Deep mutational scan, measured.
Amino acid sequence: SLEELLKLARHALRHGEEIHVLDRVITDEHEIKRLIEELERLI
């Protein structure tokens, strides 16, 4: 769900981890922040 993805993204950002989204691995902090902003808009 989007909520789950948002939780994962926030966790990854906090802990400096990578996040796997739709067969992509996002490691860049700015990309993760952008993902979080997009998800928050959708929810």
Rank of each mutant, 00 (worst) to 15 (best):
residue 20 H to I: 14
residue 6 L to V: 05
residue 1 S to R: 11
residue 40 E to K: 06
residue 39 L to K: 00
residue 34 R to Q: 15
residue 10 R to F: 08
residue 5 L to M: 11
residue 26 I to R: 01
residue 19 I to F: 11
residue 6 L to Q: 01
residue 2 L to M: 09
residue 14 R to S: 15
residue 25 V to D: 05
residue 29 E to T: 14
residue 9 A to W: 09
residue 38 E to F: 14
residue 26 I to Y: 15
residue 1 S to L: 11
residue 40 E to S: 05
residue 34 R to D: 11
residue 2 L to D: 02
residue 14 R to Q: 15
residue 43 I to G: 02
residue 30 H to K: 13
residue 23 D to I: 02
residue 20 H to T: 13
residue 34 R to M: 14
residue 15 H to M: 12
residue 12 A to P: 00
residue 37 E to R: 13
residue 40 E to V: 08
residue 25 V to Y: 08
residue 7 K to L: 11
residue 24 R to M: 10
residue 41 R to E: 07
residue 5 L to Q: 05
residue 8 L to W: 05
residue 33 K to W: 08
residue 23 D to P: 03
residue 17 E to P: 02
residue 16 G to L: 06
residue 21 V to G: 04
residue 26 I to F: 13
residue 31 E to F: 05
residue 24 R to H: 08
residue 10 R to W: 10
residue 43 I to L: 11
residue 2 L to E: 03
residue 42 L to T: 07
residue 31 E to T: 08
residue 19 I to M: 13
residue 28 D to E: 12
residue 32 I to V: 06
residue 1 S to F: 14
residue 4 E to R: 10
residue 26 I to K: 01
residue 3 E to I: 10
residue 11 H to Q: 11
residue 37 E to K: 11
residue 42 L to Y: 07
residue 29 E to M: 15
residue 1 S to D: 13
residue 24 R to P: 02
residue 31 E to H: 06
residue 32 I to R: 01
residue 13 L to D: 04
residue 31 E to S: 09
residue 36 I to T: 02
residue 10 R to V: 08
residue 35 L to Q: 01
residue 7 K to A: 12
residue 32 I to F: 04
residue 2 L to P: 05
residue 41 R to G: 07
residue 32 I to Y: 02
residue 24 R to W: 08
residue 13 L to I: 12
residue 22 L to I: 09
residue 38 E to T: 15
residue 30 H to A: 14
residue 12 A to C: 03
residue 27 T to P: 02
residue 27 T to C: 04
residue 7 K to T: 07
residue 27 T to L: 06
residue 36 I to P: 00
residue 16 G to D: 04
residue 18 E to I: 11
residue 17 E to G: 15
residue 37 E to L: 13
residue 8 L to D: 10
residue 6 L to R: 02
residue 41 R to W: 09
residue 38 E to C: 06
residue 24 R to N: 07
residue 34 R to P: 01
residue 12 A to F: 02
residue 19 I to Y: 05
residue 40 E to T: 06
